[in-house]
Design a protein around this nucleic acid. Structure first.
Length: 672
DNA sequence: AGAGTGAACCTTTTT
DNA sequence: GGTTCACTCT
């Protein structure tokens, strides 16, 4: 069974009597180790599948891992196996002990935007300070939650510092709001389980015996609370395997602590440390570049990746006059290369630092009729129409969800404007009622007109009625009824700027319906609330997963690319102030940026091209750019600088590019 | 109440 | 260059 593994991988799989740390370089087969280990535990060690849990960081990798495990053994044997993200695991723990945590069934999960708008609102209410500090405050709250610091403790720690004092006050109100409205945020999904398991022996015993073996992927990305959760679940068992790579730690900004890799040795003195250093992914040249680059970072664990795949082609560096030409050139390059080598579009990936960089590439790809897959950025769930409908569903599932209430109460128009809402809000906070239930109070005397009161009452009654439908019918039926009752298509047609936009929005609505019905078929027992929960936790990458992966060029951020691999990678925007990003330069945090570049380079299997623009528009203004320092850090002899055609005028460039395109396009389309 | 206009901010990265 | 938010006008 372990024939297909090398000796290090094999010993990692077979190590079960001690906790095990696998330091796995990029492309060294760490997912393989985890999946084989799960199979080993089940088939050789006699663990029932439901006693094993594997934790990943994205839903996408969870899915992929599940699939890879089921390809190793009959479906029957994997029944009950838990492969999920930390957040989903936390959610299960919370659901199991709702009452002990002071939550009621049907609680809502606030996503980041929900949290942010709540903070914004609280700040506006309390401090009429128009400064845009909500984001900073939320970030501070995140940090406090991560360190298990209560609002009271935060207030003490602030020690008079004005900003911190304000943040702590907001923190207090923020938590209070969540509790009042039966809601949790993303941090709570991890933090509450930790608090529960620490203080509640029964729950702790339950989970410690329920999960007999725990495997954690991308361990360098765990934060403080996640580490605590791991320790509490493992207890004094030795059923723990952790896989990570400190060179791929790119989430420090959201609290990840790569030093958790180190701390493991202290918490588990008999820890078995295994290094995986053979890379099965990239050519020698690409690997050498990656190794040379990352050598500029300090290291806790020295490791040296090597490959048997041969040296391969040189890394190409493509200088461009500006960012338009960069996009055009690369798209031309993809077409050309595909034609020459008969590859598929899905073999190519364009990777960049920030989501906004995707635009130009999207345009260039669309102009050439090249199908592409865009990850991140404006996620499906950030479209207003989707947020609206999801808020309707949330309100139906949990009528106390004030955020959802506010979002939909006047969309489409119901003549319930700011002044009405303000009165309602005054009333509801006075009696600590949700906005929804306040609609039914007939003694709102705070200057509400009869008509406004009637509108509110009608709306709330209708919501109750839909909720009733939802109880007796499928979630899809409830959603469809909402869309119909509010005449949503009409509303979209009326409000959208032009027909195209409206049509796209309606398409999105239909996609949402499909989502809900798909989730329902998958798990017919799931309540409306379960489905909303799933939708809230779904990340953007999972969207296209159900449909088989099409033949698309991938566009994604370096963060989103982690864990993936492509035959041909284009690393674009290799410029100072972009990669490394300006704020990181200012904060003197170059190392994480270097790791980001490292992650990008190591995504490539056979060819790697890096490009940079000499000029780029920034906020509509043209600025000169310097090539990234990371290019200088690569081995000079392995770089192939492509013709520097930046001396041509822009128009000549365009012409040249276009001629190139049309001839190629003819060839390619003739072929297929 | 709601639509329409200008200023201000902005771009890291995401569960 | 594009979006979001606050203010003003109908």
């Amino acid at each position: 069974m372990l024939q297909q593994l090398n000796s290090s991988q094999r010993s990692a799989v077979k190590c079960i009597d001690k906790p095990c740390l696998v330091l796995a370089g990029a492309g060294s087969g760490k997912t393989r180790v985890i999946t084989y280990k799960i199979a080993w535990l089940i088939q050789q060690c006699g663990y029932p599948a439901n006693a094993i849990a594997a934790v990943t960081f994205t839903n996408k990798s969870a899915r992929e891992m599940k699939q890879r495990v089921s390809s190793l053994m009959p479906r029957k044997q994997t029944r009950g196996l838990r492969v999920s993200t930390f957040h989903t695991l936390g959610l299960s723990i919370i659901k199991h002990s709702l009452a002990a945590l002071g939550l009621k069934t049907g609680f809502s999960i606030y996503d980041n935007t929900d949290s942010l708008s709540l903070v914004r609102e609280l700040m506006r209410k309390t401090f009429s300070d128009p400064k845009n500090q909500a984001e900073m405050t939320l970030h501070q709250i995140d940090r406090w939650k991560n360190a298990f610091i209560t609002p009271e403790a935060a207030q003490r720690l602030a020690n008079g510092d004005q900003q911190l004092t304000i943040a702590a006050a907001i923190y207090e109100q923020y938590n209070h709001h969540l509790r009042t409205y039966n809601a949790v945020d993303f941090n709570d999904l991890i933090m509450l389980p930790v608090i529960l398991l620490r203080s509640n022996e029964e729950a702790r015993n339950y989970w410690q015996s329920r999960i007999r073996y725990l495997l954690v992927d991308e361990y360098q990305d765990t934060n403080n609370t996640q580490y605590e959760l791991v320790k509490l679940i493992v207890g004094d068992k030795s059923g723990l395997t952790v896989v990570g790579d400190d060179d791929q730690s790119i989430y420090a900004w959201r609290g990840a602590q790569p030093e958790n890799l180190l701390g493991l040795g202290n918490d588990y003195p008999n820890l078995n440390v295994i290094k995986l250093e053979q890379n099965y992914r990239s050519t020698g040249c690409i690997l050498k570049a990656a190794n040379t680059l990352i050598q500029n970072n300090p290291h806790v664990f020295e490791k040296k990746l090597w490959s048997e795949l041969g040296f391969g082609e040189h890394i190409r560096i493509l200088p461009c006059a500006n960012e338009d030409i960069e996009a055009e050139q690369i798209v031309a390059e993809i077409l050309h290369h595909k034609f020459q080598y008969g590859t598929n579009f899905k073999d190519y990936a364009v990777l960049y630092r920030g989501n906004h960089q995707s635009r130009l590439f999207e345009r260039a790809l669309r102009e050439n009729n090249i199908p592409y897959y865009l990850s991140g950025g404006n996620s499906f769930f950030s479209y207003t129409e989707i947020k609206d409908l999801l808020s309707y569903l949330r309100l139906v599932a949990n009528t106390d969800d004030d955020n959802a209430f506010i979002r939909v109460v006047n969309t489409p128009r119901r003549e319930i404007g700011p002044s009405t809402l303000e009165a309602l809000n005054r009333f509801s906070s006075q009696y600590n009622h949700s906005l929804f239930s306040a609609c039914f109070e007939s003694n709102i005397t705070t200057g509400l007109k009869k008509r406004a009161q009637q509108n509110l009452h009608d709306f709330a009654k209708w919501i109750l009625d839909v909720a009733h439908t939802a109880e007796n019918d499928t979630p899809v039926a409830a959603l469809k009824r909402i869309i119909q009752d509010i005449d949503y298509e009409q509303w979209l047609n009326d409000t959208a700027k032009d027909e195209m936009v409206a049509a796209r929005k309606i398409e999105n609505v239909n996609e949402l319906i499909e989502w809900v019905s798909k989730l329902h078929t998958k798990d017919p027992e799931a309540s409306l609330h379960d489905i909303i929960t799933k939708l809230t936790l779904i990340d953007t990458l999972e969207r296209n997963d159900d449909d088989e992966i099409g033949d698309n060029v991938s566009l994604m951020t370096l963060h989103a690319a982690k864990g993936l691999e492509f035959p041909h990678v284009f690393l674009v925007g290799m410029e100072e102030e972009l990669l490394p990003h300006r704020t990181s330069i200012e904060e003197e945090n170059i190392e994480e940026e270097r790791r980001l570049a490292y992650v990008g380079i190591t995504r490539a299997q056979t060819t790697l091209t890096m490009s940079f623009a000499k000029q780029r528009k920034r906020y509509g203004e043209i600025v000169d750019c310097e090539p990234s320092r990371f290019i200088d850090e690569l081995p000079k002899d392995d770089l192939h600088w492509l013709g520097d055609n930046s001396k041509l005028t822009k128009q000549e460039q365009k012409q040249k590019g276009q001629m190139h395109f049309s001839s190629l396009r003819a060839l390619v389309s003739g072929e297929s």
